[in-house]
Every structure is written in C-alpha cells, then in structure tokens.
Design a protein around this nucleic acid. Structure first.
Lengths: 340, 340
DNA sequence: TTGTACGCGTTATCAA
DNA sequence: TTGATAACGCGTACAA
C-alpha cells in the first residue's frame, strides 16, 4: 500500500497539484506551503510512483546501455562510467548484453524495450556499415565504437588508426623491427581490427619497415585465451619476432602469459603492447604498455549527446561524429621502468 | 507516436481487453481471434507500454541488482550471470552501483526506485549485521554476500570459512608454514574478511601452526594496488613468509605483482592464492590458485528466490539461507603444473 | 499562488 | 469466449 500524492496532499492540507509542484521544484510556492508538504512527505514516507509519472510524461528516466559482454573488462569499465555519469544526469541505466550476436543486436534496435527506455547507448560488435540504415530508429540513440561511421545517429569513438600508429611507433622507437600483430579479423573490411591494423601498417611504412603477413595473427574472440593461443601458434611457427601488439589488452595479456610461460623474457626478448588501458594492465607482470581510449570522456560524451537528443532540441542537427582523446601509456612490457 | 492496444484492437476488430488477453497469454481465446490479433500486432509493430502496465498491474518486469562497483571483476562477472539468468525469466535488470558507501546502500533500501522495480538483488558491502532490521523492506529482496546473515530476507552466499580453510589447507599441504594473509579488515567483526580469516585460523590450528599477527595484513579496498602495497609493507618489514593468501583475487594478483617485481619467485620462494576465481586468474603469470565461489549458481539461486517471492506464494515462508557450492582450483602460483 | 478535471495505456471486474 | 467501463497515480490545462 504505497502512499500517493493525494494522501500527502490531504495530510498537508493542500491539493495534489501543489504537492506535485513541490516535488518537481516548481519555484512559485510559498515557503510555508512548501515546508508543510515536505513535512507530510517525510512523515508518510511518500515515494513518487515512477510508472504513473512516465505514463503521463512518456518519459521514464531510464536509458539502455547495450554492450557485447559485461565480462569483457573494457565494457565493465565503460559501463561503470556510463552508470556514474548517467546518475549525474538523473538517469538510470539498464544494461543489455548482446553477446556480440547479430540477432540480438538487431532485436535491440527493433524493440528498445517497449517504451521502457528514453534512449539507447549502443556499442555494436556484430552489426557493420551495411546495417547503417537499420539505425534509423524511432528513439534517441548514440552509437559507440568503430563498426559504423557516418550512420544516421550520433557517434562517439576514438581515432583508432592514429592511436594504433602511436603504439607501433613506440615499439619501433624501442628498437623493435619484427612486430607481430595479434587479433586480426580479416573477413571484415571495417571495424576496430581493420582500423588498428591500418595504424600498424602506417607506422611500419613510416619507418621503412616491410609488413610480414606471417606476423599478422588472427584471433577469435578478443580474450586472454585467444591471445595466448595465437602467440603459441606464432612461437610454434618459428617465425622471428621481437614485439607483439595485441589489438586489445586482453589479447596482449594472453600473449604475455604465453611468452613468459615459454621462458621468453618480456621486454628483453619480446616487447608487448595492448590497447584499452584496462585496470589490469597496471598490475600485470610486467605492467603492460597500452593506449587509454578515454573511456570516461567517451561515456560522458555519449550520455550528453543522448540527453541532448532526448530533450529533442537537436532534432534537426545532423548526426554528430565525436572523437575522444587517447593517450599512450608506455610501461614495463616495452622497457619502461616501473613507476607507481 | 507509439501504437496502442486500442489501435491494435481496432485493426483486429476486437476489444482492447481481448488484445490484452492475447498478449498476456490468457488461455481461453478462440484460435481465429488470437491469430487476427497477432497479425495486427505484427502489422502495426505494436509494443506494450510498460509504464501503463506497471501503473495498472503494479509490476514492471524489472529487477534491480545493487553491487558495489562494476569495475570489480567479481561483480562484473556476477552481473553478467544475473542479467543472463534474469533474461531467461523474462526479467530485465537495472544495475545500481552503491560504491560500497553506506549512505547509498541505505538509500537503495528506502527508495527501491519508487516502485520501478519488482524486486532487488542486493550485495551490500557497507551495511552490516547491525543493519539487519533495515532490510525489512516493502518489496521482494534477496541478499548476497557475507555481510548480513539471518536477516529478514532470503540470502545466498557460500561457506566462506570452509572455502578459506580449504585454500589454506592447500597451501599447508604444499609445505608452506608462514602464510601471510592480505586484506584483513579488523574493525569489522563480521563480513567476508572476518569469515575468511576464521577459515585461515582454523586451517593453521588443524596443522598445529601458530598464527603470527605480523603475517596478517590489512588492506583497504580489495583491489590490485592495495594487494601490492600490503605485500610491499610485508617485504619491507623483514618478516619471513613462504605464502600469501589474498582474501580476494585482485588482492592476490596485486601481491603477485609486488613479489615478482622484487625478484621473488612464485611459487618457488612464495606461493600465492586468492579467492573468487575471476577470469584473470587463469591468465596471470603464474596462473593463480583460487576458489570458485559458484557465481553462476549464486546468480541463478538469487533470481529464482526473488522470482518466487515476487509471485508472492511464499509470503509466509521464513527467510531462506542458501549456500552455493565452492571449488578449489590449484594452479601454478602454488606449484601446480600449467594445464589448459 | 493554488485547485479542478481530464487523460496517459493498461488490466480487473463483471456482465453478456 | 469476449466486451464495456472503471480504476491505477501523476502532470497539464485552465480556472480561480
């Protein structure tokens, strides 16, 4: 038996409308009235009924965050940031896990949870540029990641080519010449892998190094075990290399693990670098060189873009493409001394 | 302009109530009627308005999961499981991060998001046994963890004393005698730390080993950096030890990192064990011995208990205390050969 | 500055 | 087996 506004109004000796005004911070209320209402609210333990409000206002105060897998550290950390920043904007976050499955990513777009959410922040991993049209959804949406550029909705990402180039430059400036790349996904022309691969090629080219196909290793899901497997394949192949660039941190950590367990010294024999700057990279042995893709900035920008769309003031503004800042963090795995 | 039931009804030539019946799986409907309705739903792309339903039925199909921090790997993995299993039960999960702050944990209890959620799965980290009374909330709730036993609500946890004892037994059977414990939180008589500490003491006692206070190290938040710091304190103190038991995996991984970076060999010089079996423990170097607290089983049990309470059939059933199964996973950090 | 009346989309009641 | 109608609790006109 929840307390309603009506009951609060009765106890305070005012009308429901006045209670509503107080609750919603309407300014023109006599101080005496306001305090009587607040007193009644406290006394009765009144809680606004969100369902009623959202039915009336067709607005729930909930946004959805759709990510592939919460277990992937990058997405766990991203989600944390989105939840925290959404909170600052009085929004609650509902997390959808798509499992990186195309079906479920599409389902997300067509359902949007039945008016339950006011907007969606969507980080696709299966949909690609060909699906851009399907992003024309009837609710505010912000896209994250590198799968779809120039789609019909606001988009936040980083300059993956440049960031990746920076990592490889760093390896080269470290004296590395045979740099293996782990995590290639060759069957897709676009996406994170392709962009980071391009940065890799560009950095090699700058330094006058020829890319070797045998140094480019595919790796299935971007997790530790795929990284370790690919590294073992590389080692077994007998191909020489003096550095490994994992296209994300978990791949690189898996590589690190494989190298060390085969008695290869890092960074002395082989340098290792990753991508994402997940917390763990600061606590591996050795600590892992990586790029921070500005998770917090991405989260903040995404929430802000979404909020501005939800307010509906920007209906005519064309889709915005925003690039967050990235930053290279050289650490022990490429020869930096330990700091901190 | 969302499609309403009324419009579906018009198109199908039936009343709204009939549409409602179809949508909700009411059995007594002529097949012909049902298919007409379904056809209309598909044609119009009708989506039920959840706000309206919950206003009327006081039921949203949403449950809240309140965890301290999504960035903590244990909670990321737990959340993944809860979301997945809730989905199987047609429930959507809304995640609250309490930041392990007492204020926010209390706020959660008193608000429960204003009737927005049908139930709450709550993993407190700041509230303790003294707060048990406050768990008498007017909505279904399931408690996780080791902070509050015998509270007024259903509770899922594991036998931390036994699990911890098992870890320490394993270390002892490994020939270790001076086993440091990292992550002690002495100012609380109850909670995870206290229980795991008790298991530690029991295992030592079984083996006839005397506990040494200087081997028991406090560590603030249970993360890698606190684990590394505590280990460095221990090393600097000059106290001898041949094993480290981190009260959770991130503490243990931090310890591992500190040991290795000071040139101490693991497991040769010092063995290391943790608690939680987060994914990373299988990919550190060396891999980390730990205890799997049965995350999936915890998640499943929690959701099922909550669902049964939400159905309201168990109103008179007294609070249930359920213990999930745990399992020790010996790995390289305590001398096991690498497998897998 | 405050109050009244109405409707948001759904489900429950009861009658047909 | 189906339909008409009245709530559910709140916000918005509009009036006072």
């Amino acid at each position: 038996m929840p307390v309603t506004m009506r009951e609060v109004a009765q106890r305070a000796g005012v009308s429901v409308k006045t209670v509503s005004n107080v609750v919603n911070g309407y300014p023109y209320i006599r101080e005496a009235t306001r305090s009587r209402v607040i007193e009644a609210i406290d006394a009765l333990g009144y809680q606004m009924n969100i369902s009623a409000r959202s039915l009336r206002a067709s607005r729930t105060g909930i946004i959805a965050l759709a990510v592939p897998e919460l277990r992937m550290p990058y997405f766990a950390e991203l989600s944390e940031a989105v939840i925290r920043i959404a909170r600052e904007n009085d929004l609650t976050v509902l997390i959808e896990q798509t499992g990186a499955e195309r079906e479920r990513e599409l389902a997300l777009l067509s359902s949007a949870r039945g008016h339950l959410v006011d907007g969606v922040i969507f980080s696709p991993l299966a949909l690609g540029a060909d699906d851009a049209d399907r992003l024309n959804v009837p609710f505010p949406m912000v896209l994250l990641g590198e799968r779809i550029f120039r789609g019909p909705v606001d988009h936040v990402s980083i300059d993956n080519v440049a960031a990746s180039r920076e990592v490889v430059r760093h390896l080269i400036s470290n004296g590395r010449r045979r740099i293996a790349l782990i995590g290639m996904i060759s069957h897709e022309g676009v996406g994170t892998a392709a962009l980071r691969f391009q940065g890799y090629l560009e950095a090699l080219a700058e330094a006058g190094l020829a890319p070797s196909p045998e140094l480019v290793l595919p790796a299935g899901p971007w997790n530790r075990s795929a990284g370790a497997e690919a590294t073992n394949r590389l080692l077994d192949s007998g191909v020489e290399f003096d550095a490994v660039f994992g296209l994300n941190d978990t791949l690189a950590l898996g590589a690190l693990r494989a190298l060390l367990s085969r008695g290869i010294r890092v960074p002395n024999d082989v340098a290792v670098a990753g991508f994402d700057d997940i917390e763990e990279t600061r606590f591996s042995t050795p600590t892992l060189t990586t790029v921070d893709p500005g998770r917090d900035q991405i989260a903040r920008t995404a929430v802000e873009l979404l909020v501005s769309r939800m307010k509906g003031q920007n209906d005519e503004v064309r889709p915005r493409e925003i690039f967050a800042d990235y930053a290279l963090h050289p650490r022990q795995s490429t020869g930096e001394p330990l700091t901190g």
